[in-house]
């Protein structure tokens, strides 16, 4: 008689996180910097996915982009220049319960951290990486970046840079075990959000390159793209990024691209100044190193000690 009918049990609503639960402090990027747009998109993603702040970790390196974790009311790791990837992979390896994001920049990722970057692609852990590519070193006041267009005038190359830039999309797509490569731009908010969301939902290492405006040291390519909508093409496909109508209306050039076709993706990425926005490549079945890392968690003390004792037996006199 004291039983309660199952229908009467109602779930107490879990804590609902609002945008303000993810916000911390006032971002100290320059007015007009593209970083603000990514911050807003990521906070929106956290709210839409209702990511518990205590279970979410933003790992960054050094540079303007890498200040990002300080503006998220989650856990964060603002570490060393070029070393966000190994730290993030270490966080994820034995803590599969954590949502891990990497925030990096063109210098952090493609120059000082290039070795760690390509191996992070190969590890294919379930991590969402957002690479802020403004093609210039901003924080240290306008030095040539690895992604600066040939001839870029900077404080380290006052007569123009002398080497062709690194192509992050091509490099990513050339790495074995690559599983998600996309490009978006900070000034196309609908597309930016859709891309970050797709990266978050991807089961593996999502590499998202965001073409970024630097309000102080604007690169010529970015300038061109922001002023001429025809310079941009949107990649469309049923398995690709689903851009909002506004984006599709604003940018008239569309290209249907199947993201399972790595050869086509590499072709699109071949152009050094590729201005395609969308999903270049996705493979949900690539080998996941984080699954290997998490395969033997949760041993009891008794199990641990029994295993060590069994090993010691082999060394017993």
């Amino acid at each position: 008689m004291f039983g309660i009918k199952k229908d009467f049990i109602c779930d107490l609503p879990k804590k609902y996180y609002t945008l303000s639960n993810y916000e911390k402090g006032v971002a100290r990027w320059c007015p007009g910097c593209g970083d603000h747009a990514v911050l807003s998109s990521v906070q929106r993603l956290c709210r839409e996915e209702q990511l518990p702040p205590e279970k979410t970790v933003f790992v960054s390196g050094i540079g303007c982009s890498s200040r990002f974790p300080h503006y998220m009311n989650t856990y964060g790791f603002h570490g060393l220049h070029g070393r966000a990837f190994p730290v993030a992979c270490g966080v994820k390896f034995r803590r599969p319960d954590l949502n891990v994001f990497v925030i990096t920049g063109d210098g952090d990722c493609c120059s000082i951290g290039a070795g760690a970057w390509i191996h992070a692609i190969r590890y294919n852990m379930n991590i969402t990486t957002i690479m802020f590519d403004n093609q210039i070193y901003g924080m240290t006041k306008k030095q040539t970046s690895p992604t600066s267009r040939l001839g870029t005038i900077s404080n380290t190359h006052p007569t123009g840079s002398v080497l062709p830039p690194v192509n992050p999309l091509q490099t990513s797509l050339g790495m074995s075990n690559v599983s998600f490569v996309a490009q978006t731009a900070d000034w196309v908010p609908g597309h930016l959000f859709a891309t970050i969301k797709a990266g978050y939902e991807h089961p593996g290492f999502a590499f998202i390159k965001v073409i970024m405006r630097c309000s102080k040291f604007m690169g010529p390519l970015v300038e061109e793209m922001t002023t001429n909508r025809d310079a941009v093409s949107i990649l469309t496909h049923e398995n690709g990024i689903q851009a909002d109508d506004g984006t599709l209306r604003a940018f008239k050039n569309h290209l249907n691209h199947d993201p399972s076709d790595i050869y086509a993706a590499r072709g699109l990425a071949e152009d050094q100044e590729s201005s395609y926005l969308g999903l270049f490549y996705q493979n949900k079945d690539a080998i996941r190193y984080d699954q290997y890392g998490a395969h033997n968690l949760g041993f009891t003390p008794e199990e641990k000690m029994a295993a060590v004792n069994a090993q010691l037996d082999k060394f017993a006199v």
Partner: peptide, 28 residues
Amino acid sequence: QSSGGIIHQAEDEIAAVGFAIGASYAGK
């Protein structure tokens, strides 16, 4: 692996310590 742990052979010495620090930061 029999005692509940795992070895990670990193891509270089720097990444090896970074990875360890990441895991330590996350409580392990």
